[in-house]
Nucleic acid binder design. Structure first.
Length: 481
RNA sequence: GCUGGGGUGACAGAGCGGCUAAUGUGACCGCCUGCAGAGCGGUUUUCCGUGGGUUCAAAUCCCACCCCCAGCUCCA
């Protein structure tokens, strides 16, 4: 069975075939690091994390690059305005690289906490200035760029004639309405030969802090350039996947694709599959700072366990606009608890003589794979996993090794979705644990004597401290809730 | 205007030509339990934006219409 994935290059689901047998190369557009990671960022990264894990699970070796943008994103007009990093640093009274250092550290920590598989390379734009300047030279040499006033622009019309632009999202050049976003300034239009052209190198004005010498001017690179350069550097001139948010369908990715082709002056497609993750909305509206419906990962981690957040991400399809709300996270927590309860049920059972669960294990693996092969249908995969839980809970009388296998399978498949279920939620405190055990022992004595009022009192108080007690035929058990 | 994605039960959300339309949440009922929790079973649930058409058969394909979201040089 092979993966079918929706390709923005062709606007259809395509069967995935790696360029090199058994090896898959993925480039993911990462974050401009001037600000904290928000739910939307994390949702997108989780999608690529799942892609990575799933391909690995299927037996491929995966090489995954995700960049961090620390220069070149401008606040205002397309190729004008202040660098975002520079602006944020000034507001916080920090050096730009000081801010970046701080933000990157935070980013790594949060990515780890969210159980994102660590990428093979996480390159930064400022570390590739020489390569970027070389790339601009190549593009000029190959005739797809021109210098104007110390800045260098990509000649989109020329590129379009030879290779076709934009290609992504089912559009052609005539579909674009120039300046529809109202952000292209007058002076910028004057320098450019065509309004579609975009900057490869921008001459810095005197107030700019982040700038580098180049053959054209002291300046800084355009924001599309870094991804082309770092992609080529770490994955080669051709690779399998390029991922990003839907906002990149235009203009970032078409520009990047154009640059990739222009740098190497190639006739083939440099990247086979361009895949894009839809944005999430908050209470039905686009998440934005001005609306105040903006949630950072740090905010979320204060209220919810990382596994709950990953369960939420796995419950939505990467290509659907999904709504994020407090409620949806609470719902995700319930789903997670169902998985956890199922595992707990297995752990607490001695097992019996039945064997009917045996055939459900290949069944779930098969169903899981079928769902995932269909454009990473994680919501379907989740529902199958929950169905599997129902089968397990109905058949706890199976032989212990079969129950164990069912448990392993559940842990394994949830792991593919980035949900780390086996994380032990103990108290981290042996002393506390022995006290709890002692209390429960006493409680059992009380229950035997029918002194339920006191017994219930113990249970209620433990519950208030976050310890859930459950009685069963095989005695009481407790867990941190 | 153009481009892309949608409209499915109280809610969230799969299904994209044929099984009683998944799964979760909520509500209600039952089993189990001293009670609770977890789990199991049942009800809410023959329903798929509207109107036509194709077909033995349509939520799924075609046509028309209505509505929603997003993008069209800051953005995951």
């Amino acid at each position: 069975m092979s993966l079918k994935i929706y390709n923005s290059l062709t606007n259809q689901k395509e069967e995935f075939e790696p360029m090199e047998k058994d090896l898959v190369k993925i480039y993911s557009c990462g974050q401009t690091i001037y600000d904290d990671m928000h739910v939307g960022n994390a949702k997108t990264y989780a999608a690529w994390d799942i892609l990575n894990r799933y391909l690995s699970w299927k037996g491929y070796e995966v090489f995954h690059v995700m960049n961090i943008t620390d220069v070149g994103h401008l606040t205002d007009d397309a190729d004008r305005g202040e660098d975002k990093v520079e602006k944020a640093a000034r507001e916080k009274h920090l050096e730009p690289m000081e801010l970046v250092t701080e933000q990157v550290r935070k980013w790594y920590r949060e990515m780890d906490e969210l159980n994102m598989k660590r990428h093979n390379v996480i390159p930064r734009a400022t570390g590739h200035m020489i390569e970027m300047i070389e790339a601009v030279k190549e593009i000029i040499n190959n005739g797809f760029a021109y210098e104007e006033n110390g800045s260098v622009y990509f000649d989109v019309e020329k590129f379009n004639e030879e290779h076709g632009y934009p290609k992504l999202g089912g559009r052609t050049l005539d579909h674009l309405e120039t300046g529809a976003g109202g952000r292209v300034s007058e002076e910028e239009l004057e320098e450019k030969r065509s309004p579609y052209d975009f900057a490869l190198w921008i001459k810095a004005d005197s107030s700019h802090i982040m700038k580098w010498p180049s053959p054209w001017s002291i300046g800084y690179p355009g924001w599309h350039l870094e991804c082309s350069v770092m992609g080529i550097k770490y994955l080669g001139k051709k690779f399998d996947f390029h991922t990003g948010g839907v906002d990149h369908i235009f203009p970032h990715h078409p520009n990047e694709r154009a640059q990739n082709i222009a740098i190497k002056d190639m006739d083939e497609e440099p990247i086979n599959y361009w895949i894009h993750s839809e944005h999430i909305t908050v209470e039905g509206e686009k998440m934005s700072k001005s609306k105040g419906n903006f949630y950072t990962v740090a905010d979320l981690l204060n209220e919810f366990e990382p596994e709950v957040i990953r369960t939420f991400f796995a419950s939505i399809h990467y290509r659907s606009q999904s709504d994020f709300s407090f409620r949806s996270l609470v719902e995700s927590r319930k789903k997670l608890e169902r998985f956890q309860n199922t595992l707990r049920n297995i752990e607490e059972r001695e097992g019996g003589n039945d064997v009917d669960l045996e055939e459900d294990i290949p069944w779930i693996k098969d169903e899981f794979q079928k769902a995932m092969d269909n454009d990473l249908n994680t919501p379907l995969a989740m529902s199958k996993l929950l169905e599997f839980c129902n089968k397990v809970n109905k058949n706890l009388n199976n032989e212990k090794p079969i129950l164990e296998e069912a448990k392993q399978t559940l842990v394994e498949l949830l792991g593919v979705l980035g949900i780390d279920i086996k994380k032990e939620k103990k108290t981290k405190n042996i002393e506390a644990e022995s006290h709890i055990d002692l209390l429960l022992e006493i409680r059992e004595k009380l229950r035997e004597k029918g002194e339920y009022e006191l017994a219930d009192h113990i249970r209620e108080n433990l519950k208030k401290s976050g310890i859930s007690v459950e009685d069963s035929e095989e005695g009481p058990t407790w867990y941190v809730s």
